[in-house]
């Protein structure tokens, strides 16, 4: 049946149109493939990369010990950074101007000085304070502890952690602000106190905003820990330095360190992906299965999809 006598020319089946051609993408793919091939050939044929030495030292005990130190340092500094960051962010949003001001001052100081300087400072803290005493300033002393517990590792952990707290606090604050004011009002109208509201209602919802940059910070921290090599903490980088100082195989050992940093970064990225997915679930309001896994996202790249 047709109206007005015109025969409908629209077929009932799905559209199968000729796709738009993208010659530019193919040209770019050719260029990239060529460059990739050139780099691969160079790395495979240039003997000075010394791949056998890379393989030899890849699982060398000194290197693995250094890797463990790097991981411990990353984890402990990030733990200090995250806990400190949440505290500083909550303080910064406090109605008490002195509390908010203290937080501001902390952030101003620790963001305003280079972290390398802070690391060296903590290493020399015993020169400034031969012993820590607890008591009233300029008054009687209640007790004291030796600063001997500040080893290179602890100095590095404090410096990196306290510095990180300043950056994390800004990330957490952005997350807290991103949560609608109505959530706080609803919680308050139900008789929840300020702290309970923060812990149960605001922070869990701020996570969606906080997690991605925190993953970024963690990956950044993994590599920033290499700065502690200046105070002779045997992390991954310093371990390789110890070895190449003896055998002069600088490039292969730096390759060893780089490979390990890349591996750990990859693992952290995957962890971040799943964490993000976990905190996105209520926002998207669907079951986990409906969200793609990271490798499915990878195969979504236009060139791979056909």
């Amino acid at each position: 049946m047709t109206e007005g006598g015109a025969v409908s020319a629209v077929p009932p089946d799905d559209i199968r149109a000729v796709p738009v051609r993208h010659p530019g993408r193919w040209a770019a793919a050719v260029v990239i493939a060529f460059l990739g091939y050139a780099v691969a050939v160079s790395m495979a044929t240039n003997k000075r990369w010394e791949w056998s030495i890379v393989g030899h030292y890849f699982t060398w005990p000194t290197i693995l010990d250094g890797l463990v130190t790097t991981l411990e340092l990353t984890a402990s500094a990030m733990a200090i950074g995250i806990v400190g960051g949440v505290m500083l962010a909550v303080m910064r949003l406090s109605p008490n101007p002195l509390v908010a001001g203290a937080s501001w001052l902390y952030i101003w100081f620790f963001r305003g000085t280079p972290v390398l300087v802070q690391i060296i400072f903590w290493d020399y803290i015993s020169a400034v304070y031969p012993h820590f005493a607890i008591g009233i300033p300029l008054g009687p002393e209640v007790g004291h502890v030796s600063v001997a517990f500040i080893t290179g590792f602890v100095a590095g952990m404090f410096a990196l952690g306290f510095n990180e707290a300043a950056y994390m606090s800004e990330i957490v604050r952005a997350g807290i602000i991103s949560v609608d004011e109505g959530q706080t009002e609803a919680a308050q109208s139900l008789g929840m106190t300020r702290l309970l509201t923060m812990r149960r209602i605001v922070l869990p919802q701020a996570m969606r905003v906080i997690i991605p940059p925190t993953g970024n910070e963690t990956i950044g921290m993994l590599k920033t820990t290499s700065l502690v090599s200046v105070i002779a903490v045997t992390d991954l980088l310093y371990a390789t330095q110890i070895i190449y100082a003896a055998n002069y195989e600088i490039i292969p050992l730096l390759v060893v360190a780089s490979l390990w940093y890349l591996i750990v970064t990859t693992v952290l990225s995957i962890g971040q992906y799943y964490l993000e997915r976990h905190y996105a679930r209520s926002a998207r309001g669907q079951q986990a299965g409906a969200i793609q896994t990271w490798w499915q996202n990878l195969t979504d790249l236009p060139l791979l999809r056909r």
């Binding site: 109505g182 109208s189 008789g191 209602i201 869990p204 209520s282 926002a283």
Partner: peptide, 25 residues
Amino acid sequence: PDREVARKRTEIGMVFQRFNLFGHM
């Protein structure tokens, strides 16, 4: 004090124009 205000609010229910349900629950 905060705590007292909160306690009194438990006796008064409120429904908002924009619902304000907790999104993560």
